Simulated scan of single mutants.
Amino acid sequence: MSLDTVVEDIREEAHARAENIRAEGETRAEEIESAAQEDAEDIVADAEAAVDREIEQLREQRLSSAKLEAKQKRLEARRDVLGEVHEAVEDELAALEGDTREALTRDLLEAATEEFDEGDDVNVYGRGDDEELIDSILADYDGYEYAGEYDCLGGIVAESEQSRVRINNTFDTVLEDVWEDNLRDISNRLFEQ
């Protein structure tokens, strides 16, 4: 065997080995590239799913926020309407005249008298415009005297130092009691759904 043959065999062997290494490298590169492509596709799919979830969550938040805002506006509108109805009732009570006003004032005074002892000196206050009316009603009650003006829609406030009792039987307090007791029914009638 000559040296040239040995060199040639080594070269061929080196070429064959280089070819195997290159083929293995290409195969490995293709595997890495394929795995990277799969990873990239998974990452894109995960990102798209995350974006879809975020979009859905934002949509739900905005929808929920819009519903809450609409509900608040509805409640504000209802409050406004209830306020207007309350004011209209107050205006009607303040405008009552004649026999109706006298009957209501008399009933409120009579209800107050039950809280005082016989013989008590009772001071009665009322709306300034009702002074004459209250004086005429008080003529029927011993120890009861008109004591001055009270800022109200009508009715009376009666008090006695002997009994240490003060009764507020004004149209205002009666209205507030009736209003509070019936607010749900009033609201339901106004806003039937």
Score class of each variant (00 low, 15 high):
residue 54 E to S: 15
residue 54 E to M: 07
residue 54 E to L: 14
residue 54 E to V: 04
residue 55 I to Y: 03
residue 55 I to V: 10
residue 55 I to W: 01
residue 55 I to E: 07
residue 56 E to V: 01
residue 56 E to I: 03
residue 56 E to H: 02
residue 57 Q to S: 06
residue 57 Q to M: 06
residue 57 Q to W: 02
residue 57 Q to T: 07
residue 58 L to T: 11
residue 58 L to Q: 12
residue 58 L to W: 07
residue 58 L to Y: 09
residue 58 L to F: 10
residue 59 R to L: 08
residue 59 R to Y: 06
residue 59 R to I: 10
residue 59 R to W: 10
residue 60 E to S: 11
residue 60 E to H: 09
residue 60 E to A: 14
residue 61 Q to E: 12
residue 61 Q to S: 05
residue 61 Q to N: 04
residue 62 R to N: 10
residue 62 R to I: 14
residue 62 R to P: 00
residue 63 L to E: 12
residue 64 S to W: 02
residue 64 S to C: 02
residue 65 S to V: 08
residue 65 S to L: 06
residue 65 S to W: 11
residue 65 S to D: 04
residue 66 A to G: 03
residue 66 A to C: 01
residue 66 A to Q: 10
residue 66 A to P: 01
residue 66 A to S: 14
residue 66 A to I: 05
residue 66 A to F: 07
residue 67 K to T: 07
residue 67 K to V: 05
residue 67 K to C: 01
residue 67 K to W: 11
residue 67 K to G: 02
residue 68 L to N: 13
residue 68 L to T: 06
residue 68 L to E: 09
residue 69 E to A: 15
residue 69 E to C: 01
residue 69 E to H: 05
residue 69 E to L: 14
residue 69 E to N: 04
residue 69 E to S: 15
residue 69 E to W: 01
residue 70 A to D: 10
residue 70 A to H: 08
residue 71 K to M: 10
residue 71 K to E: 14
residue 71 K to L: 13
residue 71 K to D: 12
residue 71 K to W: 03
residue 71 K to N: 06
residue 72 Q to Y: 05
residue 72 Q to C: 00
residue 73 K to L: 15
residue 73 K to S: 11
residue 73 K to R: 15
residue 74 R to A: 14
residue 74 R to G: 07
residue 74 R to Y: 04
residue 74 R to N: 12
residue 75 L to Y: 04
residue 75 L to K: 03
residue 75 L to M: 05
residue 75 L to Q: 11
residue 76 E to C: 00
residue 76 E to F: 08
residue 76 E to D: 13
residue 77 A to W: 11
residue 77 A to G: 02
residue 77 A to H: 10
residue 77 A to N: 13
residue 78 R to H: 04
residue 78 R to Q: 13
residue 78 R to F: 04
residue 78 R to E: 14
residue 79 R to V: 02
residue 79 R to E: 12
residue 79 R to G: 15
residue 79 R to A: 10
residue 79 R to S: 05
residue 79 R to N: 14
residue 79 R to T: 07
residue 80 D to G: 15
residue 80 D to V: 09
residue 81 V to N: 06
residue 83 G to P: 00
residue 83 G to E: 03
residue 84 E to L: 12
residue 84 E to M: 07
residue 84 E to D: 09
residue 85 V to L: 14
residue 85 V to Q: 00
residue 85 V to W: 00
residue 85 V to N: 02
